[in-house]
Design a binder for these strands. Structure first.
Lengths: 218, 218
DNA sequence: ACAAACATACCAACCGGTTGGTATGTTTGT
DNA sequence: ACAAACATACCAACCGGTTGGTATGTTTGT
């Protein structure tokens, strides 16, 4: 009944342990197939502790999506792709980075909020909204790089192509990654996902192909 | 105990009714959240009939994926995009078609096997394999169009680009669509999905941009 | 030609185990 | 002293699957 207040969550507390357990367990089994007892066992806490910190399993789902946002934000903030001078290089390096981290077992490189959105979009709009916030929030961190590259290279998509924006391209990147995860899950390995990221990188390179940096004409 | 034999499935039988119900119910609720009773209620049959035709809920999942393959094969076989003379036009018209059918409620245009693969890949490899067969099987129906377009226009991806094939591009298309569905589910509407399909179409056009049909140089 | 034997398709009632959640404590930090 | 943070014990509802049975064919031996 006391909930939603302890946003900080001191490390080592039951809340933090449950949240961290949720990231791996839900990615492995999916949200519906994950029982509250699974979560408690993985976190090493009792059910009483669980329902002290979360009003319901759904509330844990929302909190897990938010926790995922924090964890991945920190993870991507430290990634090397930000360090390039050229905005387009940053975007391209982002793809290389996303390709590099496609390692280990499926639950390790797969996306929690993509999984939960797929499963819960009809039964819990609260969870779906939290998942959307997480995915769109991540897209919003690369959107400025895309926008900068477009501006710097004089790429105006509304004129030349059918009409798109830095935002729609950033969201499309997330769609490709989410879809790549699904194929990887179906096939049982990351191979297909790597190829899809390659196609995505190739797409962006082609978009900018005739738009070199400064005033160098083709 | 008698099972796996009646592959044809006479229409109107309990088996057919359960299978058809499964397509919509599982797309709406997901596989785990769908109970056997849900399926029986939607199909208008009893549980006894269900377990007469399917050994287990998982077996129904596999059969549903196979049923989905049959239904979608027939659906796409009748679609207009096959009727273009030029192979590249067929691929482009395929995208337009996929974009056009993004209508109605989410469970209506969303993919059963993508949903099931996501949810069941760890708990039932049999289901995941059936889902992979369905998605890869569909990709295999457009792969020849891509290959024909490449050959006709002299596009050799192993030389010019990083290295890709008609097969990997066809699979990438499925990844984009699957990912678009996830974003649509998270956001609660098909808007994002349409934009992703547009990006995909633009990608393929760019791939062939400098490769006109006959001998017309740029 | 016909009945016994068998198969298929289905149904209503039931069962053991699981699941999210609750009620009632006890511990711990300030 | 008191509230936040847990732990223990427990429950009602639900869920996949089973059981015993019926109705309606189909096959087979004579």
């Amino acid at each position: 009944m006391s909930n939603a207040t302890n946003v900080t969550g001191r490390p080592g507390t039951a809340r933090e342990k449950i949240l961290n357990a949720a990231l791996t367990v839900i990615r492995t089994k999916g949200f519906n197939a994950t029982t509250v007892d699974d979560l408690c066992a993985a976190a090493g806490v009792t059910k009483g502790a669980f329902f002290h910190h979360f009003d319901s399993k759904d509330a844990l789902g929302v909190a897990a999506a938010e926790h995922w946002s924090r964890v991945t934000s920190a993870f991507f903030a430290e990634a090397p792709y930000h360090r390039h001078d050229d905005p387009l290089d940053r975007v391209l390096a982002y793809f290389a980075f996303r390709r590099d981290i496609l390692q280990g077992e499926l639950p390790e490189f797969t996306c929690l909020v993509g999984t939960m959105a797929q499963e819960m979009h009809q039964s819990s709009r609260a969870i779906a909204t939290a998942c959307d916030a997480s995915m769109s929030g991540h897209a919003a961190t690369i959107e400025p790089y895309v926008a900068q590259a477009m501006e710097q290279r004089g790429l105006d998509p509304s004129g030349i192509h059918t009409g798109w924006s830095a935002g729609s391209l950033a969201l499309h990147m997330q769609a490709v990654l989410q879809g790549a995860f699904i194929l990887a899950k179906a096939k049982g390995g990351p191979g297909v996902a790597e190829e899809s990221v390659d196609h995505l990188s190739r797409y962006v390179r082609l978009l900018f192909a005739n738009h070199p940096k400064k005033g160098k004409a083709t």
